[in-house]
Computed example of a mutant assay.
Amino acid sequence: MRHLTRTLAAVAALGMAAGAASYTPPAAAREVVVIRTAPPPPRFERVPPPRVGYVWAPGYWNWYGGRYVWVGGRWAAGRPGYVYRGPGWRPYRGGYHYERETWVRDPHWHR
């Protein structure tokens, strides 16, 4: 019985090692999609009054179903020490590629 338990434990450990060795994290599997047509100009949005602890994330054009689709602005919870950078289309290899929203370190922020 003890031999069987050790054998099963060894097989399980081998299986886990093989699975870990073949794992590819999602970031490594990303590909850049380039759209040849420029996005339309941003739409005008009336920015609501400020909200304490939130940052206004303006609307943007998203690529969906083979065309640009407008996504309206929204409030995003603020992050002390960071500056919000909204999503957008950046020139890339003769076309445009979409960069997701992100938070970048504020170089002027001190605790």
Results as ranks from 00 to 15, higher is better:
residue 24 T to N: 14
residue 111 R to V: 10
residue 67 R to N: 12
residue 74 R to Y: 08
residue 74 R to S: 13
residue 79 R to A: 09
residue 106 D to L: 07
residue 62 N to H: 13
residue 65 G to S: 08
residue 48 P to S: 05
residue 6 R to S: 15
residue 71 V to F: 12
residue 79 R to S: 11
residue 86 G to W: 07
residue 28 A to P: 05
residue 66 G to C: 11
residue 66 G to E: 06
residue 49 P to G: 07
residue 57 A to W: 01
residue 42 P to C: 01
residue 11 V to R: 14
residue 49 P to H: 01
residue 26 P to D: 10
residue 81 G to Q: 07
residue 92 Y to P: 02
residue 108 H to V: 01
residue 2 R to S: 14
residue 88 G to L: 06
residue 72 G to R: 13
residue 100 R to E: 15
residue 55 V to S: 03
residue 76 A to T: 08
residue 98 Y to K: 05
residue 100 R to V: 12
residue 97 H to N: 15
residue 51 R to G: 03
residue 109 W to E: 04
residue 50 P to C: 02
residue 43 R to T: 00
residue 41 P to W: 05
residue 2 R to H: 09
residue 16 M to E: 12
residue 68 Y to T: 02
residue 37 T to Q: 15
residue 38 A to S: 06
residue 38 A to L: 00
residue 77 A to F: 09
residue 33 V to S: 10
residue 77 A to Q: 13
residue 53 G to K: 05
residue 94 G to V: 08
residue 64 Y to K: 11
residue 82 Y to S: 06
residue 57 A to E: 10
residue 52 V to P: 00
residue 73 G to E: 02
residue 16 M to A: 14
residue 76 A to E: 14
residue 26 P to C: 04
residue 37 T to V: 08
residue 53 G to R: 07
residue 56 W to G: 01
residue 5 T to V: 14
residue 40 P to F: 05
residue 81 G to P: 03
residue 58 P to C: 08
residue 58 P to V: 03
